[in-house]
Design a protein around this nucleic acid. Structure first.
Lengths: 143, 143
DNA sequence: TGTTATATAATCGTGCGCGATTCTATAGCG
DNA sequence: CGCTATAGAATCGCGCACGATTATATAACA
């Protein structure tokens, strides 16, 4: 009869979380490559499709990312012609991120990405819903 | 009455998964810094504490990592004196990874990391168990 | 046996991810 | 008004993460 090993990989919550996150990101790649987006860029675009004209800081709070990650990422999106980055008139410290027409048009092409992914994720819908609920609960518990 | 938006951040399963994984990794940092380990290095050490004398490939399959990530990571662990990397005698293609005495000793210091983390994760134990089960189910569905 | 195919790590290039620092702009306050 | 504190973004440094390629070793097989 063996004791419980607190350092065994199979006893960790963190490990399947870490592995599943990476694996899911990898699964997105074939669907995002045609759009010229990485996974993180896709997430940033989702936030901007919901609301643009936001500052780098606001965007970062929504995405749990800081300026060290966002600034170069937004520069790449700008180079692709999807967003504009402009200093705010009212507050010269802030940078406002706005979608270009190209960036808004990209949304149409992205519309079937979630559907494609749902086909790739062979999980019962009620399990997916419950998983999402628990992950959000975990995130909130960190606040 | 608004329609369901498939590209809204709050309707994604991937996003809380991505965000929670990053957030949890960040929470490990203060407990891993004293051991001189990053989160990925910690996970690799957990696998090795369970079984060492394995090849880079075997380790990679356990951790869902490939040689492009593992080789430099293992070199850093080797530089810290925690592991040895040696070409296999039987198969000169394979590299065997073994714990040093120092690496085995590190396990004692790591023993209370899971306990510290459980204190930081304010989630009902039954929720954590269910979350872990669903994440493993998701990972299996990808096989 | 020699030739081709496969397996295994290592390497390369690009893009996060983040702690720490820096630079500039605004806010607060005497 | 001037001085200090704070806020916001950019930059730096390091370590993943991974697709693609390369180099070497073994396996398979004609």
């Amino acid at each position: 009869m063996s004791e419980f090993d607190p350092l065994a990989l199979e006893n960790q919550l963190c490990f399947p979380l870490y592995a599943a996150s990476k694996e899911l990101t990898r699964r997105y790649k074939p669907f995002l490559d045609p759009l010229g987006l990485t996974y993180t860029q896709y997430v940033a675009m989702m936030a901007l499709w919901a609301q643009d004209g936001v500052t780098v800081g606001e965007l970062g709070r929504k995405l749990y990312l800081d300026s060290a990650t966002l600034t170069p990422l937004l520069k790449r999106l700008e180079a692709h012609g999807y967003v504009r980055r402009e200093r705010s008139q009212e507050d010269e410290r802030a940078v406002i991120v706005t979608l270009t027409d190209e960036g808004r048009k990209l949304r149409e092409q992205a519309l079937d990405v979630p559907y494609c992914m749902s086909g790739c994720l062979k999980m019962a819908p009620e399990d997916a819903v419950e998983l999402k609920r628990l992950l959000e609960k975990m995130l909130q518990s960190f606040e």
